[in-house]
Nucleic acid binder design. Structure first.
Lengths: 184, 184
DNA sequence: GTCTATAAGCTGATAGAC
DNA sequence: GTCTATCAGCTTATAGAC
């Protein structure tokens, strides 16, 4: 495995665990086992490896999400799969956990891949919600329900972590499934 | 206003804006206008003023939440009030935004007041959900729905911030209100 | 490509005068 | 209580040899 790959893998691990602001170049060197010269040869600055890490994390998550949606029939089955997927609640979402990182706020290049991922997720959820038929009678707004689904997952990570209780995310997802009326 | 109050106010502002890890003693001095000697006279360490700030933020939020719930009839009206309350979506929740701060994870004294606030919120939501009557027929689990409500708000902050769109939190709350069947 | 050396500035304090 | 001085260690690089 070449140095660049080692650096990128370590950066992805550290950004997931600690965020961007709280990860230093020295941590990256220690975690990757690579020397300082190599780091600044492959990446010109902290922002450069942070952006590469976030872009790669977003690409991974996009692939996983696409696989999940294409493995199920469009509609309620996809929503059930998305909301029942096993998640490491206490680790946090690889992308969502960065929402309040000061370096993400200060640098739009770091936020852009995350924003794009969530837009893609909404685009997958929209037809699934529509297909449940619950919105046809005009009682439900599709975009509102889509946003509630995204929020329940992201918020479940937050309340799980703050309560040190992995079950909180599961309960939140089950609650939303029941409210959607698709919890079998 | 005495130095201690100036320090606490500035610490609360900075912890809300930047979190604990990303706030330095120097920022606190600059933001409060107080000298270094005073800081270390009133607070022995960074952890000390961070804990004081978080405890005070949690106390503020508890008062506001209690006022909101006691201003409305128990049941659907309280849930409507809680989910319709105007929120500064892009600023983040004063407590929830700390979920993935490395210093919060490393120090249970910092997480405890936040955890207590959320437990209190769940205790307020539980009878309100029960009173809607939707759970009586055994279709809905109270704790699951309570957790979904907490999560939608916290997750709405997250998706709003990541999409740089204050409307995301509003949509998520509206979506959940509609699913709860209490959106008038 | 990778290495070691160097550095200006910041972090999180401590010391001691006033 | 508040002030200035000092400090060891870390952060985010840059320089130049190999």
């Amino acid at each position: 495995m070449d140095s660049r790959t080692k650096l990128l893998d370590a950066a992805k691990r550290l950004v997931w665990e600690r965020g961007v602001e709280a990860t230093s170049p020295n941590m990256l060197l220690a975690c990757s086992g690579v020397g300082q010269g190599s780091l600044y040869h492959h990446f010109g600055s902290k922002a450069a490896w942070a952006e590469a890490a976030i872009t790669s994390l977003a690409a991974d998550l996009t692939v996983e999400t696409d696989e999940l949606f294409s493995a199920h029939a469009p509609g309620a089955e996809q929503l059930r799969a998305y909301l029942s997927k096993p998640r490491a609640a206490l680790d946090g979402c690889r992308l969502g956990r960065l929402a309040f990182d000061p370096e993400i706020r200060a640098n739009d290049a770091l936020r852009a891949p995350i924003s794009t991922y969530f837009e893609h997720l909404r685009a997958l959820l929209r037809p699934a919600v529509r297909a449940t038929g619950a919105v046809e009678d005009g009682e439900l707004d599709v975009d509102d329900v889509v946003e509630a689904i995204c929020a329940v997952v992201q918020g479940g990570y937050v309340t799980s972590r703050l309560s040190d209780d992995a079950g909180a995310l599961d309960r939140a997802c089950r609650g939303l499934l029941a409210l959607l009326g698709i919890d079998h």
